[in-house]
Design a protein around this nucleic acid. Structure first.
Lengths: 216, 216
DNA sequence: ATTTTATAAAATTTCGAGATTTTGGTATAT
DNA sequence: ATATACCAAAATCTCGAAATTTTATAAAAT
């Protein structure tokens, strides 16, 4: 694998899981030292990440971690509801048994971890594994929609959404609700009810829409 | 303005308006000569364009113009209907008079050009100006939605959509229908009917959904 | 005291060349 | 005839340094 791609993925992870300060400056030269490569290589990766939205680029002023704001989070949530709802509904239509099986499996894993978190003293220690499972569940949910473009787009929105939310949310106060939400989504999907599925996805994410000027 | 940005924009235009062959190889070194700069600068721009989706990047194999396919076009159309519908509906709610005025103006310009095209021997000569007006109309349609993220996302989908369609479509056989479509969308918007607006946007783009396995 | 100007330091952008990998052609073996 | 191994040419990737621009600091002017 090329160095550039390596660095791209590493940085992406750090950005999503808040390995950097909110709005921090990202100096290619410093990161280059850390990664043991040249500044240009880091620069390429940062450029790509800026197009994805995890990094902000300013002409002659370098790169910064995208800032957090309630507005941005609300916008991303709105789009997630839209895309994930669409993806789920299409998957219901096209998915068949194998998709149902995969989704059930993903949900089983996620709910197992979420129940662990609920009864745990230091839930932060489970944050990483939780993130992976939660992502997998939501990805699986739309995985049979038949549109790569939709999934790709959802992936980006999801990444930015997590970036906005991480740390803040890692106290897991919401975990009981969440267990309920995920189960409700699965239930709606399995019953084949498209409108209900959309509604449940909406309910799951609703709490992040505060301060939103967009419609409900 | 930096050279990189210059090149980025130039390449973006060429890619969208099919200044390159379908699937053509994009060699940084050759383009560098043409632009009078170094290969690394072009490389940065190409990397960004690959993240946007106009260019395909392969590890150790360089860059290519994104291939055209009916499937891809259908996927992009599907997303356009979704995002543009949502953006238009939100704009109806938040837009107010000034948005209505801007949309009417954009429509007036577009319909003027489309009528010129209808009665023209060599419609290709008007392709450039048409593209600009059509883009402006659809951008204005969602411009009061209140979500930068949504608009940005729509912009990317729109760019890829155009890339798939250009040349092929520049014979303007559809122009009479199109005049009708655009007027219908404007009418639905002005009546404040949200469902009708979505439906009209869908009808406008429907012909590109052939070969689609996604539901309509 | 505040603003403007000049200068130095730091950061960003661009470059061209060297290192690495792929591609295409030729020879050798099965 | 097909497949494999080898080599040379071409393309890609990485680097470190030079050129440019911004930022910070201090001196001069209002």
């Amino acid at each position: 694998m090329s160095k550039e791609l390596d660095i791209y993925t590493t940085l992406q992870d750090r950005l999503i899981f808040n390995g950097f300060e909110h709005g921090a400056k990202l100096r290619a030269e410093l990161l280059a030292k850390e990664f043991g490569c040249s500044a240009s290589t880091v620069r390429e990766a940062l450029f790509r990440l800026s197009t994805v939205g995890l990094v902000r680029f300013q002409e002659q002023r370098g790169f910064r971690v995208t800032e957090k704001s309630a507005t941005k989070l609300a916008e991303l949530t709105h789009l997630r509801v839209l895309l994930e709802g669409e993806g789920a509904v299409l998957s219901i239509r096209n998915g068949g048994v194998s998709w149902g099986a995969r989704l059930t499996a993903a949900h089983y894993k996620l709910s197992y971890i979420e129940k662990q978190i609920r009864g745990c003293e230091n839930p932060e220690t489970l944050a990483d594994i939780w993130s992976l499972s939660e992502k997998e569940f939501h990805q699986t949910l739309i995985s049979a929609c038949g549109s790569d473009t939709l999934q790709q787009m959802h992936g980006r929105i999801y990444a930015q959404f997590r970036q906005q939310l991480m740390v803040v949310d890692m106290r897991f106060d919401f975990i009981s609700e969440n267990i309920q939400h995920h189960a409700s989504i699965l239930e709606a999907v399995m019953s084949g009810d498209e409108d209900l599925t959309r509604q449940r996805i909406h309910e799951h994410l609703e709490r992040h829409l505060v301060g939103d000027t967009l419609g409900d």
